[in-house]
Structures are given as structure tokens and as C-alpha cells.
Design a protein around this nucleic acid. Sequence first.
DNA 1: TATTGTTATACTCTATAACTATA
DNA 2: TATAGTTATAGAGTATAACAATA
Lengths: 151, 151
Amino acid sequence: MPQRPARIGFLLAQLGAHAADIFAEQTRSLGITPSEAGVIRIVARNPGISQRALADRLGAVQSRVVTLVDRLESAGLVSRTRSESDRRMQLLALTNAGESMLGGLRQAAEEQEKQLTSGFTEEQKTALFELLSALGAARGLDAEVHPGYRS
Amino acid sequence: MPQRPARIGFLLAQLGAHAADIFAEQTRSLGITPSEAGVIRIVARNPGISQRALADRLGAVQSRVVTLVDRLESAGLVSRTRSESDRRMQLLALTNAGESMLGGLRQAAEEQEKQLTSGFTEEQKTALFELLSALGAARGLDAEVHPGYRS
DNA sequence: TATTGTTATACTCTATAACTATA
DNA sequence: TATAGTTATAGAGTATAACAATA
């Protein structure tokens, strides 16, 4: 039996949704959705990734990735290139505009962080960061993506 | 300029989605959705609440609440009663079955908490709980509900 | 005229299944 | 025959707008 009522799970879900909302507001002003931002982040760190591998990474189905990449390609942010060695594969990369967008996303993340932790001291921020990192590692979460890839 | 890259926001969104997923798995076995669980929790703590007030509390539109309450009423968990003093209002309350479901939800929350924090010491759990509570309070979040009312 | 609740409808997100091209 | 990607389609969740009853 726990010493206190279960609250960590609720607070995480609540604050997680709140953090995602703030980030969504930021990305909206950049003209993309949080899901698309998640794709940009993965492609940036894994240039030449196939749509198949991206789908596995996101925990999404292939058709979902097609839709997401379609939009990003139309927006000129991501390029598809047929692999020479295996012409079934589309290799993904950021365009120059995509790299600029990545910079915008980094700023959006900084802004989100600032809004979120504005009332906290540096000590509190450090303590919270370390506890959340430890929890993420303990739960086996991918440091580049999260279920729902909302931010 | 922050001393570290923005990560608290990402970790919160990631872990929040993860916590919500665990809770959703629990509620599924109870036959309800996380949104419905959110309604049950609010009605339990605010018996006789109107649909209008519930909508405001959830940050949802009235038609959304109609849909949610329709399902819960069909399932026999929530009752609607016309207010005597203002016959426009439907007053909501939990049925006996709704009270039982509330008990099940409490167990689900305990199970979520256990899964989530299994690798942590009591000291870590306490520290994390206090930091998250402080952050929730600083951000002005309602202790009974959260945006998206996912858990 | 304003408010509570309801219904009708549409839009977004996401998944499943069938299909094409390549291996 | 198996795999990467695509297209067609459908379902869930949620919102907007029009409407009914009551104040």
C-alpha cells in the first residue's frame, strides 16, 4: 500500500498535456502541427531514414507516415529520395527550409520551457529534470520521441 | 539563456502521454474511456453539477458533454435529473454502479502509480510528487481535471 | 432576449485493408 | 513470396451551428 494517494501519474498526465498544449501553440505559429514537428526532429537526427524505419520509431503505421511526409514535402520541409540500392525505399532528409524550421522548433522548445518553469528556481529545475530523466530511462522511453509524438 | 537544452517540457509531455496510456489500458478493462473516467471523477466530487458547469470545468463544449453523459447514462453509471428550481438544467449524480466504478478507477490509479514509479525509491517518489505539485500549482492547473481530461 | 441542453453535421486524426512496385 | 510505400476507406473524437425548452 502506498503512503499517499496515487497522484504522480495524474500530475504527469495533467502537466504533460499542459506542456504539449504550450508547444502546440508555438508550432501553430510556425505553420506545422506537433506531429509534423516530431517527424522533423527524427529526420534531422537520422538523415536518410526510410519511411518504414520512421514509422517504427514513431510507433505509427506506414500509411500514417505517408500522410505526414506528404504534408511536409508539399511544405518544402522534407525531401524524399529513392534509394539507389533498394528502389522500394524513400530516403528522407530535411531541405534547407526544413533546417530553418528545426531552428524555429528549438526556439519553440525554449519558449515552452521558459513558460513552464518560470516560477521555479534553478535548483528546482535541475532536480525535476533529473527525476524526469531517471523516470524516462526507467520506463524505457526513447529520448527522441514519445507515444503520440505530441511535442 | 538556459544552462541546459530545453528538456523538462519534452520529458513532461513524453511521460505524461506514457502515464495516460497506462491509465487508458486500466480503464479499458473497466469498460470506459479516460474521458468518461474524467467525468465520473468530477461528478463524484460535485454531485448535482449541471452539464453546463461540467463543460466549463472540463474546458469542453456543451455538445461534447451531452455525448459523454449519454454514454455514461446508458451504461447506468450517471443519472440526469431535471432541476426543480430551473427546469433547463440537468443535474448529474453517480448511480450506485457509478460509485462502484469510482472505486475501480481508484484502483486503476493505484495500479498506474505502481507501474510508473516501480523503479523509484520512496525518497525519489516524494521529491517528484512535491515538484510536480508545485509546478501544477504554479501553472494554475485544476487539481481535479486536466486539458484533454485523458486520465 | 439569454441560457441549458440537444441534434445535425462536419472536420481532424489515425488506423485497416487493398494495391503497386521492387526485391 | 516478402517488403516499402501508397491509396482508399472507415472509425473515433471533437467542434460548430441550428434548434427546443425554459427563464
